[in-house]
Design a protein around this nucleic acid. Sequence first.
DNA 1: TAAATTTGACCAGT
DNA 2: ACTGGTCAAATTTA
Length: 267
Amino acid sequence: MESSSSPNYKKALIRELIKGRDSTKKLLNLLRRNNLNDSAEDLVVKILRSFSDSLSVLNSCNSGDSYPVSACSGDRRFDSGQSKRKPAPAPAPVVKDRRGCYKRRKTEDSRIKIVDEIEDGFLWRKYGQKEILYSKSPRCYFRCTHKDEGCKALKQVQKLEDGSEKFHVTYIGHHTCQNMHQNTQMFSDSGTRGFFLLNFDDTKLNNSPSLSTITNIQNTHLMEQEDAQSDHGQSSIPMWKDMISDAGSSQEELFNNGGYLGGGFMF
DNA sequence: TAAATTTGACCAGT
DNA sequence: ACTGGTCAAATTTA
């Protein structure tokens, strides 16, 4: 995997970021243990998040290179997900299909977002899920519901592992469909939760005046505040969201107990 | 019953 | 050889 295209300085950079992140985590634990004031803790959480996000972004820029970033200094306790695999339920009829027969997309136009909520106002259809090496949370794969109409937009979602309830979302391609009707529904459904839409990062996307590009209506911080107190409205949220969230929460315990310091570095 | 999700299989890239 | 991305049959949901 260590391709020649991954210069040493990048690895060094990642190493340093990991060190910084791990140290910050230790500091955070220390703060919590000593019950110091909240603002100090908030600050550390923010720093931590920066490390995690930086690592995520940095690595995803490498599109192909996957560093064996032990989420936590050589932590290799995660299996690759293989062990989780159920035994084949039945002798399974021989498949004549062409599963996996596809053209792997080159890193065409992709944008990365760290978001509090998975929903972004578009209609997505899940087409796969994978356990990712060294990641606690599975990665879910979505395509636009209107794929049949030629819309090639894709979305990958994975829960961050820095303890926050955020998601690492990668958008690939752009909507060519008029996939907007859910937005109007969201306005009316949102209740106390408030309406949110992703603001596709136009700094990376400056040439995408597509219909799909929605400007931010409410920033994600509001969501953060409201998330803590409201869990109603979940019923309208697709199951895959629960799944991603559950995976995170249960494992969080495990990692806290084990002194896990891993962050949101997932790729 | 149609649409959506789950999940094991398969393939490309490294 | 290994991992991640996609396919599609089976299953679940509306």
